[in-house]
């Protein structure tokens, strides 16, 4: 494991990658990407037991599924900076003939991606299938999943949440990015979801919270705790409290930057707040 200082440096660099990707093509989703940066760095650099290279079947390693595919900028940046493909390829984000589609896909053969996502609500089901396949293969590695909180409004999630608990899918850690925002406003205004923790618990999940979802150390510690909860007959849910747009002051605490790219001046401000540490692509 890299030390915390190195990981913090990577967090800063990933935030730059996110801003530069969406700025270049004047499209994409910076808000949720920035809010989940610490989570992705913790996952790929500390938590997951990953093999070198990429094979679709993922036997003998931990797997990650991104259900809220629109936060592809952070996914692509961390995949590239974890060695799945050249960092320079981030230059092709959302361009014609790119492997870095607006939403992640297996269709163009991008290493690190095992399912297409974008149409919301499908990731937990896919993860359960992958988790059950691991059990059939006597592979004791874990499945990690990330979902948005607004995404939980999709009904398929609750089919999956019911199934996972009822069938003791306990090699699965589903993290909910609890930023309280969605396209049309706050989740409480668009469609109040009530007590998400109580809902998961009522369905039979082992639920824990990470209150400081943008504090790298807190995320690492919290996810390590989540890992210890696996294998106990219950699927594990982590409620990750994040701030949409975290790390760029004018993008924080608002849904306005869910799917909007910064202009030249805004990019300069955002980059100034996130120093170049490992080299821009």
């Amino acid at each position: 494991m890299a030390d915390l200082q190195q990981l913090e440096a990577l967090v800063s660099q990933v935030r730059r990658d996110i801003l530069r990707q969406v700025h270049k093509v004047n499209s994409g989703h910076p808000g949720g990407s920035l809010g989940c940066t610490e989570f992705f760095v913790a996952l790929y650099k500390v938590l997951m037991d990953r093999k070198d290279g990429f094979s679709m079947d993922g036997k003998g390693e931990d797997l990650f599924f991104l259900s809220n595919g629109h936060i592809s900028p952070v996914f692509y940046s961390v995949l590239a900076r974890s060695g799945y493909f050249p960092v320079e390829e981030l230059n092709t984000f959302r361009l014609l003939n790119s492997r870095l589609q607006g939403h992640p896909t297996t269709h163009e053969g991008l290493p690190g991606v095992r399912i297409a996502s974008g149409s919301l609500g499908q990731g937990i089901s896919v993860s359960i299938g992958a988790a059950q396949a691991k059990k059939l293969n006597n592979d004791d590695h874990l499945i990690y999943t990330l979902c948005g909180d607004g995404e939980l409004q999709e009904g398929q999630n609750w089919e999956a949440i019911m199934y996972a608990a009822g069938n003791k899918v306990d090699n699965l850690i589903v993290t909910i990015d609890l930023n309280g925002q969605q396209i049309d406003g706050s989740t409480d205004n668009v469609l109040p979801m009530g007590n998400i923790k109580a809902k998961f618990e009522a369905f039979g999940w082992d639920v824990m919270e990470i209150e400081a979802g943008n504090n790298l150390e807190a995320v690492i510690d919290g996810m390590k705790t989540a890992k210890t909860k696996t294998g106990n007959g219950k699927p594990v849910c982590v409620l990750l409290h994040t701030i949409m747009g975290h790390g760029v002051d004018f993008m924080m605490h608002t849904h306005a930057w869910h799917g909007k790219a910064p202009n030249d001046e805004q990019l300069a401000v955002g980059l100034a707040q996130n120093p170049e540490t490992l080299g821009d692509y």
Partner: peptide, 19 residues
């Protein structure tokens, strides 16, 4: 999977990833 076809299709897709 119970009366939950959407979850069934998603799970099926995930199962293929383990071969």
């Amino acid at each position: 999977v119970g009366i939950a076809e959407a979850n069934m299709i998603g799970m099926a897709a995930g199962m293929t990833i383990g071969g």
